[in-house]
């Protein structure tokens, strides 16, 4: 009597082939040196979702985004964006890195940086023309930064720098926005601007995946959440995911019981 044949792994979480998810991850595994950062992650982002990726420090949130973009090597896993490979779908993705990842003393103005978002569209060897500069300025305007177009980026405040990054992502006219802690260390005006822009692009049909730290605001800003702690703990609509039990599982002793209860109550 033979045991039954094992069936292909892909059938564990079959992908929707007809209406492919904006972001579909299977078995993503990443390790730094010999410490795993993300382990066997399966995830399908809902179309037109505003998704918060939450989890304690060191849970692999940023690593997940970088691995999806091929910026860090993966041990295993398969990532599809709108049903195609990353290489094919690259132009449909805009990535906002953490603000600390670049040299703000670089000789570039806010407008220059936003124009960089248009480079993919302009193509190799072609110069940035007047209409590209005008487009860049209109994106700056959308994040309330029109007055700072010519300012060297190092002379902007942290929040303003973040808005420049946001405008640059807008310029990429993407269908999937990946943001790495855009709210870290910004002022209230910037926070509002970011939320407004996220909603605008969502309403225009895009999907936003955002690493987020502030649990208090998750329910206000987002409609979906992915709770990560190396493993995927849970994902789904914010109201279903922000429960005492799941937060307890993700954060454990790192959040006080009262805090967890307050956050779960807010959802």
């Amino acid at each position: 009597m033979n045991p039954p044949r094992l069936i292909p792994f892909e059938t564990r979480q079959p992908r929707n082939e007809i209406a492919p998810s904006p972001l579909s991850i299977r078995g993503l595994t990443v390790a730094y040196d010999d410490k795993p950062a993300v382990w066997d992650l399966d995830y399908d982002a809902p179309d037109r979702g505003l998704i918060a990726v939450i989890g304690p420090n060191g849970a692999g949130k940023s690593t997940m985004i970088k691995a999806m973009l091929g910026l860090v090597p993966t041990l295993a896993g398969d990532v599809r964006v709108f049903g195609s490979t990353l290489r094919q779908a690259r132009r449909r993705i805009a990535y906002i890195p953490q603000r600390t990842s670049v040299d703000w003393d670089f000789p570039a103005s806010a407008e220059d940086v936003v124009a960089m978002g248009l480079y993919g569209e302009i193509g190799w060897c072609r110069p940035v023309r007047r209409r590209h500069r005008e487009a860049a300025r209109s994106y700056l305007d959308r994040v309330g930064m029109a007055d700072f177009a010519g300012r060297q980026i190092g002379q902007l405040s942290g929040g303003q720098q973040q808005r420049v990054f946001l405008a640059r992502a807008l310029a990429q006219k993407a269908d999937l926005y990946l943001m790495d802690e855009p709210f870290a260390g910004v002022d209230a005006a910037t926070e509002r601007a970011i939320v407004n822009v996220m909603r605008e692009v969502r309403d225009a049909g895009a999907t936003v995946l955002c690493v987020h730290h502030d649990l208090q605001t998750v329910a206000d800003y987002f409609d979906h959440a992915l709770i990560l702690n190396v493993h995927a703990i849970a994902h789904g609509a914010v109201d279903d995911v922000l429960t005492e039990e799941l937060l307890q599982r993700a954060y454990g002793g790192r959040l006080a019981e009262t805090e967890i209860r307050a956050i779960a109550g807010s959802a």
Binding site: K66, L69, G70, L71, R87, R90, R91, I93, A94, Y95, P97, S101, V102, D103, F106, A108, D112, V113, M116, G117, Y119, G120, R168, Q172
Partner: peptide, 14 residues
């Protein structure tokens, strides 16, 4: 310019 300023963005632009 872009690969000097922000290698991550440059890579994500392909």
């Amino acid at each position: 310019k872009v690969s000097t300023f922000d290698a991550g963005l440059a890579a994500s632009l392909g």
